[in-house]
Design a protein around this nucleic acid. Structure first.
Ligand SMILES: NC(=O)c1ccc[n+]([C@@H]2O[C@H](COP(=O)([O-])OP(=O)(O)OC[C@H]3O[C@@H](n4cnc5c(N)ncnc54)[C@H](O)[C@@H]3O)[C@@H](O)[C@H]2O)c1
Ligand SMILES: NC(=O)c1ccc[n+]([C@@H]2O[C@H](COP(=O)([O-])OP(=O)(O)OC[C@H]3O[C@@H](n4cnc5c(N)ncnc54)[C@H](O)[C@@H]3O)[C@@H](O)[C@H]2O)c1
Lengths: 233, 233
DNA sequence: ACGCCCTTGTGAAAGTACGCACAAAGTAGG
DNA sequence: CCTACTTTGTGCGTACTTTCACAAGGGCGT
Protein backbone atom coordinates (compact mmCIF):
# COMPACT_ATOMS: atom_id res chain seq x y z
CA UNK A 1 0.00 0.00 0.00
CA UNK A 2 1.49 3.23 -1.12
CA UNK A 3 0.77 6.09 1.26
CA UNK A 4 -0.72 8.72 -0.94
CA UNK A 5 0.47 12.27 -0.81
CA UNK A 6 -1.82 14.16 1.54
CA UNK A 7 -2.71 16.87 -0.89
CA UNK A 8 -1.80 16.03 -4.46
CA UNK A 9 -3.56 19.08 -5.75
CA UNK A 10 -4.55 21.91 -3.55
CA UNK A 11 -6.70 23.85 -5.89
CA UNK A 12 -5.83 27.01 -4.10
CA UNK A 13 -2.74 28.39 -2.49
CA UNK A 14 0.52 26.72 -3.52
CA UNK A 15 2.09 24.68 -0.79
CA UNK A 16 5.30 26.67 -1.00
CA UNK A 17 3.31 29.81 -0.34
CA UNK A 18 1.50 28.30 2.63
CA UNK A 19 4.86 27.45 4.16
CA UNK A 20 5.96 31.08 3.89
CA UNK A 21 2.81 32.76 5.14
CA UNK A 22 3.66 32.06 8.79
CA UNK A 23 6.99 33.78 8.28
CA UNK A 24 5.32 36.86 6.86
CA UNK A 25 2.78 36.75 9.62
CA UNK A 26 5.42 36.74 12.30
CA UNK A 27 7.23 39.66 10.72
CA UNK A 28 4.00 41.59 10.41
CA UNK A 29 2.99 40.95 13.98
CA UNK A 30 6.33 42.30 15.09
CA UNK A 31 5.77 45.42 13.04
CA UNK A 32 2.26 45.84 14.34
CA UNK A 33 3.55 45.73 17.89
CA UNK A 34 6.04 48.42 17.06
CA UNK A 35 3.26 50.54 15.66
CA UNK A 36 4.08 50.33 11.98
CA UNK A 37 0.97 51.04 9.95
CA UNK A 38 1.94 50.10 6.42
CA UNK A 39 4.76 48.21 4.80
CA UNK A 40 5.99 47.79 1.25
CA UNK A 41 6.63 44.41 -0.27
CA UNK A 42 10.27 45.36 -0.52
CA UNK A 43 10.64 45.99 3.18
CA UNK A 44 8.60 43.05 4.32
CA UNK A 45 10.43 40.76 1.94
CA UNK A 46 13.75 41.90 3.33
CA UNK A 47 12.66 41.07 6.86
CA UNK A 48 11.24 37.74 5.84
CA UNK A 49 14.32 36.92 3.83
CA UNK A 50 12.63 36.43 0.49
CA UNK A 51 12.48 38.05 -2.92
CA UNK A 52 9.94 40.87 -3.03
CA UNK A 53 8.31 39.57 -6.20
CA UNK A 54 7.80 36.25 -4.51
CA UNK A 55 6.26 37.95 -1.54
CA UNK A 56 3.86 39.89 -3.73
CA UNK A 57 2.92 36.78 -5.63
CA UNK A 58 2.37 34.91 -2.40
CA UNK A 59 0.11 37.63 -1.08
CA UNK A 60 -1.72 37.88 -4.36
CA UNK A 61 -3.03 34.38 -3.72
CA UNK A 62 -4.98 35.76 -0.79
CA UNK A 63 -6.44 38.62 -2.75
CA UNK A 64 -5.51 42.17 -3.63
CA UNK A 65 -4.83 43.56 -0.23
CA UNK A 66 -2.16 46.07 -1.13
CA UNK A 67 -2.41 49.65 -2.26
CA UNK A 68 -0.26 50.64 -5.18
CA UNK A 69 2.07 53.44 -4.39
CA UNK A 70 1.71 52.77 -0.67
CA UNK A 71 2.10 49.14 0.32
CA UNK A 72 0.15 46.90 2.61
CA UNK A 73 -1.78 47.82 5.72
CA UNK A 74 -0.04 45.87 8.44
CA UNK A 75 -3.02 45.11 10.65
CA UNK A 76 -5.22 44.20 7.77
CA UNK A 77 -2.61 41.86 6.35
CA UNK A 78 -2.11 40.24 9.72
CA UNK A 79 -5.81 39.57 9.82
CA UNK A 80 -5.99 38.22 6.29
CA UNK A 81 -3.04 35.88 6.68
CA UNK A 82 -4.32 34.69 10.03
CA UNK A 83 -7.67 33.97 8.53
CA UNK A 84 -6.17 32.13 5.59
CA UNK A 85 -4.03 30.00 7.86
CA UNK A 86 -6.96 29.21 10.08
CA UNK A 87 -5.56 31.04 13.05
CA UNK A 88 -8.72 32.99 13.77
CA UNK A 89 -9.90 29.92 15.56
CA UNK A 90 -8.14 27.96 18.26
CA UNK A 91 -6.76 24.50 17.61
CA UNK A 92 -6.50 21.82 20.19
CA UNK A 93 -3.29 19.84 20.45
CA UNK A 94 -2.36 16.67 22.27
CA UNK A 95 1.20 15.48 22.84
CA UNK A 96 2.08 11.81 23.11
CA UNK A 97 5.41 10.99 24.74
CA UNK A 98 6.44 13.16 27.63
CA UNK A 99 10.19 12.64 27.59
CA UNK A 100 12.93 15.14 26.89
CA UNK A 101 11.27 16.55 23.85
CA UNK A 102 7.66 16.23 24.94
CA UNK A 103 8.42 18.22 28.07
CA UNK A 104 10.18 20.91 26.13
CA UNK A 105 7.20 21.22 23.85
CA UNK A 106 4.72 21.27 26.70
CA UNK A 107 6.67 23.95 28.50
CA UNK A 108 7.07 26.08 25.43
CA UNK A 109 4.97 29.17 25.69
CA UNK A 110 5.05 30.03 22.03
CA UNK A 111 2.18 27.76 21.09
CA UNK A 112 -0.60 28.98 23.32
CA UNK A 113 -0.02 32.55 22.28
CA UNK A 114 -0.57 31.56 18.67
CA UNK A 115 -3.87 29.84 19.03
CA UNK A 116 -2.66 26.32 19.71
CA UNK A 117 -3.98 25.02 23.01
CA UNK A 118 -2.28 21.99 24.46
CA UNK A 119 -5.14 19.99 25.90
CA UNK A 120 -3.51 16.75 26.93
CA UNK A 121 -0.23 14.94 27.49
CA UNK A 122 0.07 11.18 27.18
CA UNK A 123 2.74 8.70 28.13
CA UNK A 124 2.99 4.96 28.49
CA UNK A 125 5.44 5.00 31.38
CA UNK A 126 3.78 4.58 34.78
CA UNK A 127 6.48 6.71 36.38
CA UNK A 128 5.54 9.61 34.18
CA UNK A 129 1.78 9.22 34.18
CA UNK A 130 0.30 11.40 36.88
CA UNK A 131 3.16 13.90 36.85
CA UNK A 132 2.23 17.48 36.36
CA UNK A 133 3.97 19.06 33.39
CA UNK A 134 3.26 22.60 32.28
CA UNK A 135 0.09 22.66 34.31
CA UNK A 136 -1.29 19.45 32.87
CA UNK A 137 -1.43 16.02 34.44
CA UNK A 138 0.15 13.41 32.22
CA UNK A 139 -2.42 10.79 31.31
CA UNK A 140 -1.94 7.22 30.35
CA UNK A 141 -1.77 6.58 26.64
CA UNK A 142 -4.62 4.13 26.96
CA UNK A 143 -6.96 7.02 27.66
CA UNK A 144 -6.04 8.68 24.38
CA UNK A 145 -9.23 7.81 22.56
CA UNK A 146 -11.46 9.09 25.35
CA UNK A 147 -9.62 12.33 25.81
CA UNK A 148 -9.17 13.09 22.14
CA UNK A 149 -12.87 12.61 21.69
CA UNK A 150 -13.98 14.70 24.62
CA UNK A 151 -11.45 17.48 24.10
CA UNK A 152 -11.97 17.61 20.35
CA UNK A 153 -8.27 17.37 19.61
CA UNK A 154 -7.46 18.09 16.00
CA UNK A 155 -3.66 18.00 16.02
CA UNK A 156 -1.66 15.15 17.50
CA UNK A 157 2.02 15.56 18.30
CA UNK A 158 4.15 12.44 18.48
CA UNK A 159 7.23 12.68 20.68
CA UNK A 160 7.60 9.03 21.56
CA UNK A 161 10.48 6.77 20.61
CA UNK A 162 10.46 5.68 16.99
CA UNK A 163 9.20 2.18 17.68
CA UNK A 164 6.03 3.46 19.31
CA UNK A 165 5.32 6.20 16.84
CA UNK A 166 3.27 4.32 14.28
CA UNK A 167 1.14 2.73 16.98
CA UNK A 168 0.47 6.06 18.64
CA UNK A 169 -0.26 7.60 15.26
CA UNK A 170 -2.79 4.89 14.48
CA UNK A 171 -4.54 5.58 17.77
CA UNK A 172 -4.64 9.29 17.06
CA UNK A 173 -6.10 8.65 13.65
CA UNK A 174 -8.63 6.17 14.90
CA UNK A 175 -9.71 8.67 17.51
CA UNK A 176 -10.38 11.21 14.79
CA UNK A 177 -7.23 13.31 14.66
CA UNK A 178 -6.59 14.51 11.12
CA UNK A 179 -3.28 16.32 11.52
CA UNK A 180 -0.13 14.86 12.99
CA UNK A 181 3.19 16.45 13.80
CA UNK A 182 5.80 13.75 14.10
CA UNK A 183 9.16 14.10 15.83
CA UNK A 184 10.05 10.43 15.76
CA UNK A 185 12.49 9.36 13.06
CA UNK A 186 10.12 7.11 11.17
CA UNK A 187 7.91 7.48 8.13
CA UNK A 188 4.33 7.24 9.29
CA UNK A 189 1.56 5.61 7.30
CA UNK A 190 -1.78 7.34 7.48
CA UNK A 191 -4.99 7.45 5.47
CA UNK A 192 -5.12 10.04 2.70
CA UNK A 193 -7.36 12.33 4.70
CA UNK A 194 -4.74 12.78 7.40
CA UNK A 195 -1.89 15.28 7.11
CA UNK A 196 1.45 14.43 8.57
CA UNK A 197 4.36 16.76 8.94
CA UNK A 198 7.63 15.62 10.34
CA UNK A 199 10.38 17.40 12.16
CA UNK A 200 13.53 15.39 11.96
CA UNK A 201 16.58 16.87 13.56
CA UNK A 202 18.94 14.18 12.42
CA UNK A 203 17.98 14.83 8.85
CA UNK A 204 18.60 18.53 9.27
CA UNK A 205 22.07 17.86 10.62
CA UNK A 206 22.81 15.43 7.84
CA UNK A 207 21.83 17.97 5.22
CA UNK A 208 24.13 20.47 6.86
CA UNK A 209 26.88 17.88 6.92
CA UNK A 210 26.45 17.31 3.21
CA UNK A 211 26.95 20.97 2.41
CA UNK A 212 29.72 21.26 4.94
CA UNK A 213 31.59 18.47 3.25
CA UNK A 214 31.04 20.05 -0.10
CA UNK A 215 32.53 23.31 1.13
CA UNK A 216 35.54 21.47 2.44
CA UNK A 217 35.99 19.65 -0.86
CA UNK A 218 36.07 22.84 -2.82
CA UNK A 219 38.46 25.60 -2.00
CA UNK A 220 38.18 29.17 -0.84
CA UNK A 221 34.60 30.12 -0.08
CA UNK A 222 33.21 32.97 -2.17
CA UNK A 223 33.30 36.36 -0.55
CA UNK A 224 30.43 38.64 -1.21
CA UNK A 225 27.66 40.53 0.45
CA UNK A 226 25.53 39.54 3.34
CA UNK A 227 22.41 37.64 2.53
CA UNK A 228 19.35 36.54 4.36
CA UNK A 229 19.02 32.88 4.97
CA UNK A 230 15.82 31.29 3.92
CA UNK A 231 15.06 27.67 3.74
CA UNK A 232 12.24 25.38 3.04
CA UNK A 233 11.12 22.36 4.95
CA UNK B 1 20.07 27.01 -1.38
CA UNK B 2 23.25 28.38 -2.81
CA UNK B 3 22.11 31.46 -4.68
CA UNK B 4 24.75 32.06 -7.27
CA UNK B 5 27.82 29.99 -7.33
CA UNK B 6 30.02 31.35 -10.08
CA UNK B 7 31.73 27.97 -10.17
CA UNK B 8 29.13 25.45 -11.27
CA UNK B 9 31.28 22.38 -11.25
CA UNK B 10 27.93 20.63 -11.19
CA UNK B 11 28.81 17.37 -9.66
CA UNK B 12 25.64 18.61 -8.07
CA UNK B 13 23.03 16.52 -6.36
CA UNK B 14 19.64 18.27 -6.39
CA UNK B 15 18.70 19.74 -3.06
CA UNK B 16 15.46 17.79 -3.00
CA UNK B 17 17.44 14.61 -3.35
CA UNK B 18 19.85 15.52 -0.58
CA UNK B 19 16.91 16.00 1.75
CA UNK B 20 15.68 12.49 1.04
CA UNK B 21 18.96 10.64 1.26
CA UNK B 22 18.88 10.60 5.07
CA UNK B 23 15.46 8.97 4.92
CA UNK B 24 16.72 6.25 2.64
CA UNK B 25 19.78 5.84 4.80
CA UNK B 26 17.74 5.29 7.91
CA UNK B 27 15.54 2.73 6.20
CA UNK B 28 18.59 0.93 4.85
CA UNK B 29 20.33 0.87 8.21
CA UNK B 30 17.24 -0.70 9.70
CA UNK B 31 17.26 -3.36 7.01
CA UNK B 32 20.95 -4.00 7.47
CA UNK B 33 20.40 -4.59 11.17
CA UNK B 34 17.71 -7.10 10.37
CA UNK B 35 20.08 -8.89 8.05
CA UNK B 36 18.52 -7.94 4.72
CA UNK B 37 21.14 -8.22 2.00
CA UNK B 38 19.49 -6.61 -1.00
CA UNK B 39 16.45 -4.46 -1.63
CA UNK B 40 14.56 -3.35 -4.70
CA UNK B 41 13.74 0.26 -5.41
CA UNK B 42 10.09 -0.66 -5.08
CA UNK B 43 10.45 -2.00 -1.56
CA UNK B 44 12.79 0.67 -0.33
CA UNK B 45 10.59 3.36 -1.79
CA UNK B 46 7.57 1.94 0.02
CA UNK B 47 9.41 2.04 3.33
CA UNK B 48 10.69 5.54 2.72
CA UNK B 49 7.28 6.71 1.59
CA UNK B 50 8.26 7.88 -1.88
CA UNK B 51 7.66 6.96 -5.49
CA UNK B 52 10.04 4.26 -6.70
CA UNK B 53 11.04 6.16 -9.81
CA UNK B 54 11.99 9.09 -7.65
CA UNK B 55 14.06 6.87 -5.46
CA UNK B 56 15.90 5.41 -8.41
CA UNK B 57 16.57 8.82 -9.85
CA UNK B 58 17.80 10.01 -6.50
CA UNK B 59 20.18 7.11 -6.19
CA UNK B 60 21.31 7.52 -9.77
CA UNK B 61 22.86 10.82 -8.76
CA UNK B 62 25.30 8.92 -6.60
CA UNK B 63 26.24 6.48 -9.33
CA UNK B 64 25.06 3.16 -10.65
CA UNK B 65 25.02 1.14 -7.51
CA UNK B 66 22.13 -1.15 -8.30
CA UNK B 67 22.02 -4.46 -10.10
CA UNK B 68 19.30 -4.88 -12.66
CA UNK B 69 17.00 -7.74 -11.96
CA UNK B 70 18.16 -7.82 -8.35
CA UNK B 71 18.12 -4.46 -6.64
CA UNK B 72 20.60 -2.70 -4.41
CA UNK B 73 23.08 -4.20 -2.00
CA UNK B 74 22.00 -2.83 1.34
CA UNK B 75 25.40 -2.52 2.99
CA UNK B 76 26.98 -1.01 -0.06
CA UNK B 77 24.24 1.53 -0.43
CA UNK B 78 24.47 2.46 3.22
CA UNK B 79 28.12 3.16 2.70
CA UNK B 80 27.64 5.16 -0.47
CA UNK B 81 24.91 7.34 0.95
CA UNK B 82 26.86 7.88 4.14
CA UNK B 83 29.88 8.91 2.17
CA UNK B 84 27.87 11.27 -0.01
CA UNK B 85 26.27 12.91 2.99
CA UNK B 86 29.62 13.30 4.70
CA UNK B 87 28.82 10.90 7.50
CA UNK B 88 31.98 8.91 7.18
CA UNK B 89 33.57 11.60 9.24
CA UNK B 90 32.45 12.99 12.55
CA UNK B 91 31.05 16.46 12.87
CA UNK B 92 31.37 18.61 15.92
CA UNK B 93 28.32 20.43 17.20
CA UNK B 94 27.85 23.18 19.75
CA UNK B 95 24.50 24.17 21.25
CA UNK B 96 23.77 27.70 22.38
CA UNK B 97 20.86 28.13 24.77
CA UNK B 98 20.40 25.43 27.37
CA UNK B 99 16.74 25.85 28.19
CA UNK B 100 13.85 23.51 27.59
CA UNK B 101 14.84 22.74 24.07
CA UNK B 102 18.60 22.91 24.44
CA UNK B 103 18.45 20.34 27.23
CA UNK B 104 16.27 18.02 25.21
CA UNK B 105 18.73 18.24 22.35
CA UNK B 106 21.73 17.70 24.56
CA UNK B 107 20.13 14.67 26.17
CA UNK B 108 19.07 13.17 22.89
CA UNK B 109 21.11 10.10 22.13
CA UNK B 110 20.27 9.99 18.46
CA UNK B 111 22.94 12.44 17.42
CA UNK B 112 26.08 10.85 18.74
CA UNK B 113 25.20 7.56 17.18
CA UNK B 114 25.04 9.23 13.80
CA UNK B 115 28.38 10.91 13.80
CA UNK B 116 27.42 14.20 15.38
CA UNK B 117 29.40 14.87 18.51
CA UNK B 118 28.12 17.54 20.85
CA UNK B 119 31.23 19.28 22.02
CA UNK B 120 29.92 22.22 23.96
CA UNK B 121 26.86 23.84 25.52
CA UNK B 122 26.58 27.57 26.00
CA UNK B 123 24.22 29.77 27.92
CA UNK B 124 24.13 33.36 29.06
CA UNK B 125 22.34 32.73 32.33
CA UNK B 126 24.64 32.51 35.32
CA UNK B 127 22.28 30.08 37.00
CA UNK B 128 22.69 27.66 34.13
CA UNK B 129 26.39 28.11 33.45
CA UNK B 130 28.33 25.48 35.33
CA UNK B 131 25.48 22.99 35.39
CA UNK B 132 26.21 19.58 34.05
CA UNK B 133 23.88 18.57 31.24
CA UNK B 134 24.27 15.32 29.36
CA UNK B 135 27.80 14.93 30.66
CA UNK B 136 28.90 18.38 29.62
CA UNK B 137 29.42 21.44 31.74
CA UNK B 138 27.47 24.40 30.43
CA UNK B 139 29.86 27.21 29.53
CA UNK B 140 29.26 30.89 29.39
CA UNK B 141 28.36 32.23 26.00
CA UNK B 142 31.29 34.64 26.17
CA UNK B 143 33.65 31.71 25.83
CA UNK B 144 32.05 30.69 22.56
CA UNK B 145 34.81 31.95 20.32
CA UNK B 146 37.53 30.20 22.29
CA UNK B 147 35.75 26.90 22.49
CA UNK B 148 34.56 26.85 18.92
CA UNK B 149 38.08 27.48 17.81
CA UNK B 150 39.75 24.89 19.99
CA UNK B 151 37.11 22.20 19.49
CA UNK B 152 36.85 22.83 15.76
CA UNK B 153 33.08 23.12 15.85
CA UNK B 154 31.54 23.11 12.41
CA UNK B 155 27.83 23.10 13.24
CA UNK B 156 26.22 25.57 15.61
CA UNK B 157 22.78 24.95 17.04
CA UNK B 158 20.79 27.94 18.22
CA UNK B 159 18.23 27.22 20.93
CA UNK B 160 18.11 30.63 22.54
CA UNK B 161 15.15 32.98 22.65
CA UNK B 162 14.46 34.74 19.40
CA UNK B 163 15.90 38.07 20.46
CA UNK B 164 19.31 36.55 21.13
CA UNK B 165 19.45 34.36 18.09
CA UNK B 166 20.99 36.75 15.59
CA UNK B 167 23.64 37.80 18.06
CA UNK B 168 24.57 34.24 18.87
CA UNK B 169 24.56 33.41 15.18
CA UNK B 170 26.96 36.24 14.44
CA UNK B 171 29.32 34.97 17.10
CA UNK B 172 29.18 31.46 15.69
CA UNK B 173 29.94 32.78 12.24
CA UNK B 174 32.72 35.01 13.40
CA UNK B 175 34.24 32.08 15.23
CA UNK B 176 34.30 30.10 11.99
CA UNK B 177 31.15 28.03 12.12
CA UNK B 178 29.80 27.53 8.61
CA UNK B 179 26.58 25.61 9.32
CA UNK B 180 23.82 26.70 11.64
CA UNK B 181 20.70 24.93 12.78
CA UNK B 182 18.26 27.48 14.11
CA UNK B 183 15.32 26.74 16.40
CA UNK B 184 14.51 30.33 17.21
CA UNK B 185 11.60 31.86 15.32
CA UNK B 186 13.59 34.48 13.46
CA UNK B 187 15.13 34.77 10.03
CA UNK B 188 18.88 34.84 10.44
CA UNK B 189 21.24 36.85 8.29
CA UNK B 190 24.50 35.18 7.43
CA UNK B 191 27.23 35.49 4.84
CA UNK B 192 26.72 33.45 1.66
CA UNK B 193 29.28 30.87 2.69
CA UNK B 194 27.25 29.89 5.73
CA UNK B 195 24.37 27.46 5.54
CA UNK B 196 21.38 27.97 7.78
CA UNK B 197 18.58 25.54 8.28
CA UNK B 198 15.68 26.32 10.51
CA UNK B 199 13.33 24.17 12.49
CA UNK B 200 10.23 26.14 13.36
CA UNK B 201 7.56 24.30 15.25
CA UNK B 202 5.06 27.11 15.15
CA UNK B 203 5.24 27.18 11.41
CA UNK B 204 4.65 23.45 11.22
CA UNK B 205 1.56 23.78 13.36
CA UNK B 206 0.31 26.68 11.30
CA UNK B 207 0.69 24.71 8.10
CA UNK B 208 -1.27 21.88 9.66
CA UNK B 209 -3.92 24.36 10.76
CA UNK B 210 -4.22 25.64 7.22
CA UNK B 211 -4.95 22.20 5.85
CA UNK B 212 -7.15 21.36 8.78
CA UNK B 213 -9.27 24.39 8.09
CA UNK B 214 -9.43 23.51 4.44
CA UNK B 215 -10.73 20.06 5.29
CA UNK B 216 -13.37 21.59 7.54
CA UNK B 217 -14.40 24.07 4.86
CA UNK B 218 -14.99 21.25 2.44
CA UNK B 219 -17.86 20.00 4.58
CA UNK B 220 -19.61 23.31 4.81
CA UNK B 221 -20.72 25.38 1.80
CA UNK B 222 -17.58 27.28 0.92
CA UNK B 223 -17.90 31.02 1.30
CA UNK B 224 -21.40 31.12 -0.24
CA UNK B 225 -20.86 34.27 -2.20
CA UNK B 226 -18.91 35.96 0.53
CA UNK B 227 -16.58 38.48 -1.02
CA UNK B 228 -13.83 40.39 0.66
CA UNK B 229 -14.54 43.94 1.58
CA UNK B 230 -11.71 45.28 -0.50
CA UNK B 231 -12.73 43.50 -3.62
CA UNK B 232 -12.31 45.92 -6.41
CA UNK B 233 -14.90 46.69 -9.04
C1' DA C 1 24.65 -21.42 -23.78
C1' DC C 2 20.23 -19.46 -24.12
C1' DG C 3 16.26 -17.14 -23.31
C1' DC C 4 13.00 -15.55 -19.73
C1' DC C 5 11.92 -12.43 -16.45
C1' DC C 6 12.88 -8.97 -13.12
C1' DT C 7 14.63 -4.47 -11.96
C1' DT C 8 17.46 -0.62 -12.92
C1' DG C 9 18.56 3.77 -15.07
C1' DT C 10 16.86 7.48 -17.75
C1' DG C 11 14.59 10.18 -21.65
C1' DA C 12 10.67 12.91 -21.94
C1' DA C 13 6.43 14.92 -20.31
C1' DA C 14 3.94 17.20 -16.91
C1' DG C 15 3.69 19.93 -12.96
C1' DT C 16 5.75 23.53 -9.64
C1' DA C 17 8.37 27.25 -8.26
C1' DC C 18 11.13 31.36 -8.95
C1' DG C 19 12.28 36.01 -10.18
C1' DC C 20 12.61 39.66 -13.78
C1' DA C 21 10.56 43.36 -15.66
C1' DC C 22 6.80 46.29 -16.57
C1' DA C 23 2.04 48.01 -17.19
C1' DA C 24 -1.56 49.29 -14.20
C1' DA C 25 -3.17 51.65 -10.33
C1' DG C 26 -2.89 54.47 -6.79
C1' DT C 27 -0.87 58.78 -4.10
C1' DA C 28 0.78 63.51 -3.76
C1' DG C 29 1.34 68.05 -5.22
C1' DG C 30 0.37 71.85 -8.16
C1' DC D 1 -7.48 67.96 -13.81
C1' DC D 2 -2.92 66.79 -14.78
C1' DT D 3 1.79 65.29 -14.06
C1' DA D 4 5.36 62.92 -11.42
C1' DC D 5 6.34 59.31 -8.62
C1' DT D 6 5.75 55.00 -6.00
C1' DT D 7 4.51 50.31 -5.49
C1' DT D 8 1.48 46.56 -6.55
C1' DG D 9 0.02 42.57 -9.30
C1' DT D 10 1.29 39.50 -12.93
C1' DG D 11 2.84 37.72 -17.71
C1' DC D 12 6.53 35.19 -19.06
C1' DG D 13 10.94 32.76 -19.47
C1' DT D 14 13.83 29.67 -16.76
C1' DA D 15 14.94 26.22 -13.64
C1' DC D 16 13.85 22.56 -10.76
C1' DT D 17 10.90 18.37 -9.43
C1' DT D 18 8.08 14.64 -9.97
C1' DT D 19 6.19 10.91 -12.52
C1' DC D 20 5.58 7.85 -16.42
C1' DA D 21 7.07 4.47 -19.31
C1' DC D 22 10.32 1.55 -21.35
C1' DA D 23 14.79 -0.08 -23.35
C1' DA D 24 18.81 -2.03 -21.64
C1' DG D 25 21.23 -4.94 -18.36
C1' DG D 26 21.91 -8.90 -15.60
C1' DG D 27 20.80 -13.08 -12.98
C1' DC D 28 18.90 -17.60 -13.00
C1' DG D 29 16.83 -21.93 -14.48
C1' DT D 30 17.17 -25.28 -17.81
N1 LIG E 1 15.19 14.91 22.40
C1 LIG E 1 15.53 15.40 21.23
O1 LIG E 1 16.16 16.42 21.14
C2 LIG E 1 15.14 14.71 19.98
C3 LIG E 1 15.77 15.08 18.82
C4 LIG E 1 15.43 14.45 17.63
C5 LIG E 1 14.47 13.49 17.63
N2 LIG E 1 13.89 13.13 18.75
C6 LIG E 1 12.87 12.10 18.72
O2 LIG E 1 11.77 12.48 19.48
C7 LIG E 1 11.25 11.38 20.15
C8 LIG E 1 11.25 11.63 21.63
O3 LIG E 1 12.56 11.92 22.05
P1 LIG E 1 12.88 12.09 23.57
O4 LIG E 1 14.29 12.52 23.67
O5 LIG E 1 11.87 12.93 24.21
O6 LIG E 1 12.76 10.59 24.10
P2 LIG E 1 12.46 10.13 25.60
O7 LIG E 1 12.87 8.72 25.68
O8 LIG E 1 13.05 11.10 26.53
O9 LIG E 1 10.90 10.25 25.71
C9 LIG E 1 10.02 9.38 25.10
C10 LIG E 1 8.79 9.28 25.96
O10 LIG E 1 7.81 8.53 25.25
C11 LIG E 1 7.18 7.65 26.18
N3 LIG E 1 6.60 6.55 25.44
C12 LIG E 1 7.18 5.41 25.01
N4 LIG E 1 6.30 4.63 24.37
C13 LIG E 1 5.13 5.29 24.40
C14 LIG E 1 3.85 4.99 23.89
N5 LIG E 1 3.60 3.88 23.21
N6 LIG E 1 2.87 5.89 24.11
C15 LIG E 1 3.13 7.02 24.76
N7 LIG E 1 4.32 7.36 25.27
C16 LIG E 1 5.31 6.50 25.08
C17 LIG E 1 8.29 7.23 27.09
O11 LIG E 1 7.74 6.78 28.32
C18 LIG E 1 9.05 8.54 27.27
O12 LIG E 1 8.54 9.28 28.32
C19 LIG E 1 12.10 10.20 19.75
O13 LIG E 1 11.51 9.53 18.68
C20 LIG E 1 13.36 10.84 19.29
O14 LIG E 1 14.01 10.06 18.32
C21 LIG E 1 14.20 13.73 19.95
N1 LIG F 1 10.74 24.52 23.79
C1 LIG F 1 10.16 24.27 22.64
O1 LIG F 1 9.50 23.25 22.52
C2 LIG F 1 10.28 25.19 21.50
C3 LIG F 1 9.43 25.04 20.44
C4 LIG F 1 9.54 25.89 19.34
C5 LIG F 1 10.51 26.86 19.33
N2 LIG F 1 11.32 27.01 20.36
C6 LIG F 1 12.32 28.04 20.31
O2 LIG F 1 13.55 27.54 20.76
C7 LIG F 1 14.22 28.52 21.51
C8 LIG F 1 14.50 27.99 22.88
O3 LIG F 1 13.30 27.59 23.49
P1 LIG F 1 13.29 27.12 24.99
O4 LIG F 1 11.93 26.66 25.29
O5 LIG F 1 14.41 26.18 25.23
O6 LIG F 1 13.57 28.49 25.77
P2 LIG F 1 14.16 28.67 27.21
O7 LIG F 1 13.81 30.03 27.65
O8 LIG F 1 13.75 27.51 28.05
O9 LIG F 1 15.71 28.56 27.01
C9 LIG F 1 16.47 29.55 26.38
C10 LIG F 1 17.85 29.51 26.98
O10 LIG F 1 18.69 30.39 26.25
C11 LIG F 1 19.50 31.09 27.16
N3 LIG F 1 19.94 32.32 26.54
C12 LIG F 1 19.31 33.52 26.46
N4 LIG F 1 20.06 34.41 25.81
C13 LIG F 1 21.19 33.79 25.48
C14 LIG F 1 22.36 34.20 24.80
N5 LIG F 1 22.48 35.43 24.30
N6 LIG F 1 23.33 33.31 24.64
C15 LIG F 1 23.20 32.06 25.11
N7 LIG F 1 22.12 31.61 25.76
C16 LIG F 1 21.13 32.47 25.93
C17 LIG F 1 18.62 31.31 28.35
O11 LIG F 1 19.41 31.53 29.50
C18 LIG F 1 17.87 29.99 28.43
O12 LIG F 1 18.58 29.05 29.20
C19 LIG F 1 13.31 29.73 21.52
O13 LIG F 1 13.71 30.60 20.49
C20 LIG F 1 11.97 29.16 21.21
O14 LIG F 1 11.17 30.09 20.55
C21 LIG F 1 11.23 26.18 21.45
Amino acid sequence: MTPRSPRPKDRGIPEATVARLPVYLRALQGMAERGTLTVSSEDLAAIAGVNSAKLRKDLSHLGSYGTRGVGYDVDYLVYQISRELGLTQDWTVAIAGVGNLGRALANYGGFGTRGFRIAALFDADGRVVGDEVAGLVVRHIDTLEDVVGSEDVSIGVIATPAVSAQGVCDRFVKAGVTSVLNFAPVVLSVPPAVDVRKVDLSIELQILAFHEQRKADGQAPPEAGWIDATEKT
